[in-house]
Design a protein around this nucleic acid. Structure first.
Length: 277
DNA sequence: ACGAGAACCTGTTTGC
DNA sequence: TGCAAACAGGTTCTCG
């Protein structure tokens, strides 16, 4: 499901149809997603204006006039679709929530596995919101660099791959881009996180930025669920160097090795044992 | 306290 | 071919 680039792709798709618009109607087809939907969800949104559509880590943050923020997470299988026409086509299976704007646009949230959620949070409660409070730095911010990453990894006795999935270390990286960034940085996913310091941390921070930026430019990666809100597929999966490429030749071309697949913390990791140390 | 594994839920792919 | 097991982009809870 969606990692930072996919969520950012969704944000950019929502921007032109949601920012500055009034929410005319909210349809909620289930009482719960991953968590129970917030009390008075529809009423609290209806008639309000969307001031901004932002992102923090893998969370969409939709700022609502009056001070509430809609916190929206896509989980593993969450998908956002925009229908410019009125009325929108009949809902499909797992179309759980629908926002209708004064621009005549329908925005639909589809999430088969329901690991995603929506919550409405008042301004004064935002800073203490548990899922946001301990997030690490945004990897695409200018302040994020090798020194910041090294500091965050200091003393961590877990493999670097597992550390990159820890949202308190860096925010927004998931299972695909962890493998991809480590390959680009030439660092083994099995290396202990605390040994990624100095030059290695500089290379890894740069690789994280590069791979995330390239993925956003490609509209994210579509393995099965991800769609850009206009329905188009992302196409960064064609640029994967190691993810989902077990048994294929290492793209470096000079090592004569084959991409390996291992399991770390219950998740698949892909890497080249020659090029990554 | 920290890290690995299970759990949450449904759909799709893989393997016998 | 058919069925069951394994696996999937995330996060949190439990257990050692």
């Amino acid at each position: 499901m969606p990692e930072l680039p996919e969520v950012e792709t969704v944000r950019r798709g929502l921007l032109p149809v949601l920012e500055g618009r009034r929410l005319e109607r909210v349809i909620q087809r289930r009482p719960d997603l991953r968590f129970p939907m917030p009390e008075g969800f529809g009423q609290r949104l209806t008639g309000r204006t969307v001031d901004a559509v932002q992102r923090r880590a893998k969370f969409l943050m939709v700022r609502i006039s009056g001070g509430d923020t809609l916190i929206w997470h896509l989980g593993m299988s969450g998908r956002v679709m925009i229908f410019p026409e009125t009325p929108a086509p009949p809902p499909a299976a797992h179309d759980h929530v629908e926002l209708l704007t004064d621009g005549g646009v329908t925005i639909r949230f589809n999430d088969a596995r329901r690991f995603g959620f929506m919550d409405l949070v008042a301004a004064e409660d935002l800073a203490s919101y548990p899922m946001l409070a301990h997030l690490g730095p945004e990897p695409l911010d200018d302040e994020f660099d090798g020194a910041v990453l090294a500091e965050r990894l200091r003393g961590k006795n877990t493999p670097i791959k597992a550390a990159l999935l820890d949202q308190r270390v860096v925010a927004g990286i998931g299972n695909i881009y962890a493998s991809e960034a480590l390959f680009r940085a030439g660092i083994s996913p099995r290396r202990l996180a605390r040994t990624v310091q100095g030059g290695r941390a500089v290379k890894l921070a740069a690789a994280i930025k590069a791979v995330l930026a390239a993925a956003i430019a490609a509209g994210g990666s579509t393995l099965r669920d991800h769609r850009q809100p206009n329905g188009e597929l992302g196409y960064f999966q064609h640029a994967f160097e190691v993810y989902d490429r077990a048994g294929q030749a290492c793209p470096n071309g000079v090592c004569n090795a084959v991409i390996r697949q291992i399991v770390q913390s219950g998740r698949s990791t892909f890497y080249c044992s020659r090029c990554q140390r």
